[in-house]
Lab assay of single mutants.
Amino acid sequence: VTTYKLVINGKTLKGETTTKAVDAETAEKAFKQYANDNGVDGVWTYDDATKTFTVTEMV
């Protein structure tokens, strides 16, 4: 189990959260659900070296 981080660069919501998951795919599903629940829709990137997902909403 690995800890993954999500950085949110939203128009109205900004911040970070973490989740523990067995792999990046599982973490991504959890983060996308979290973003969807919070009304964040944007471009996703993932950095495997730092285990960090970033979602950026276009203005």
Score class of each variant (00 low, 15 high):
G10M: 15
F53P: 00
T2I: 10
G10A: 13
T54F: 04
T12P: 07
K32R: 14
Q33T: 10
D37Q: 08
T2Y: 11
V43W: 08
K29P: 02
G15Y: 14
T3K: 08
F53W: 11
W44V: 02
V22Y: 04
V40W: 05
T52K: 05
D47G: 02
T17M: 10
V59P: 15
T50M: 10
T50E: 08
E25N: 09
K14C: 05
K20A: 10
Y34T: 03
T2Q: 08
A30D: 11
T18P: 02
V7W: 06
N38C: 05
Y34A: 03
I8K: 01
N9K: 06
T19H: 10
K11R: 14
Q33N: 12
A27N: 00
D48C: 04
G15A: 14
A21W: 03
T52C: 04
D41W: 10
L6A: 03
D41P: 04
T52M: 06
Y34C: 03
N9V: 07
T26D: 15
A49C: 05
K14R: 12
D37I: 11
F31D: 00
D23V: 04
V43N: 08
K20Q: 06
A35C: 05
K11S: 14
Y34H: 08
V7Y: 15
D48K: 12
G42T: 01
G15V: 15
Q33M: 07
Y4P: 00
T19S: 06
T50A: 14
Y46S: 01
K51N: 10
G15K: 14
A21Y: 04
E28A: 11
T12E: 14
T12Q: 15
E57V: 05
K11H: 14
Y4T: 00
T12A: 12
T12F: 15
T45E: 10
Y4W: 11
Y4G: 00
V55T: 03
E28Q: 11
E57C: 03
T18S: 15
V22S: 11
D23P: 01
N9P: 03
L6F: 07
M58F: 14
T18M: 10
K5T: 14
Y46I: 02
A21C: 04
T45M: 15
V40P: 02
A24G: 06
W44Y: 03
E16Y: 06
N9I: 15
M58W: 10
T52W: 02
N9T: 13
M58G: 12
A21F: 06
Y46V: 01
L13Y: 09
K51C: 05
G15S: 09
A24W: 12
K11M: 13
D41V: 13
T2E: 15
T19D: 03
A35H: 02
Y34V: 08
Y4N: 00
F31E: 00
L13C: 07
G15E: 15
F31S: 01
Y34G: 01
L6N: 01
A30H: 15
T18Q: 07
K29T: 12
E16G: 03
I8P: 01
G42D: 01
E25G: 11
Y34L: 09
N9G: 03
E28D: 07
E25V: 09
K29L: 13
I8C: 04
T2A: 11
T45A: 12
Y46R: 02
T17V: 14
E16S: 06
T56L: 05
A27Y: 00
D47I: 07
Q33A: 11
V43K: 09
F53K: 00
D23M: 06
Q33D: 10
V1W: 11
V55S: 02
F53V: 01
T56C: 04
D47M: 04
F53L: 01
L13K: 04
V1K: 10
T56I: 11
D48S: 12
K20E: 15
V22F: 12
M58N: 13
T18V: 10
K5I: 11
T17G: 07
L6Q: 01
G15I: 15
I8H: 03
G10W: 13
G42L: 02
K14Q: 13
A49D: 09
T26F: 09
A27D: 00
T3I: 13
V1R: 07
K14S: 11
A49S: 09
V22A: 10
G15R: 15
V7R: 08
A24K: 12
N36H: 13
V1T: 08
A24E: 07
L13M: 13
T26K: 08
V22N: 10
T3H: 06
K32L: 13
G39S: 13
F31Y: 02
T26H: 13
L6E: 00
V22I: 08
D47K: 04
G42C: 02
T26V: 07
Y34I: 12
F53G: 00
K14L: 13
D23G: 04
N9H: 06
E28W: 12
V59F: 06
V59E: 10
F53I: 02
K14M: 08
V43M: 11
V59K: 05
V40S: 03
A24H: 11
V7H: 05
A21G: 03
A49L: 14
A27T: 01
G15T: 15
V22C: 04
E57N: 03
T26N: 10
Y34E: 03
Q33I: 12
N38T: 12
L13D: 08
D48N: 13
V7T: 08
V1N: 10
D23K: 05
D48E: 14
T50S: 15
K32I: 11
G15N: 11
K11A: 13
Y34F: 11
T18N: 05
Q33K: 14
M58A: 13
Y46F: 06
G39V: 04
G42K: 01
D37Y: 10
T17Y: 14
T52I: 14
T52H: 03
D48T: 06
D23I: 03
A35M: 07
E16M: 03
T17Q: 14
T12H: 14
Y4M: 01
T56W: 10
V7M: 08
T54Q: 06
L6C: 11
F31A: 02
T17I: 12
N36R: 10
M58Y: 15
G15M: 14
N36Y: 14
K14F: 10
Y46D: 00
N36V: 10
N9R: 10
T45G: 08
T54W: 11
V22L: 06
L13W: 09
N36T: 10
G10C: 06
A49T: 08
N36D: 13
V40L: 09
M58S: 10
A24L: 11
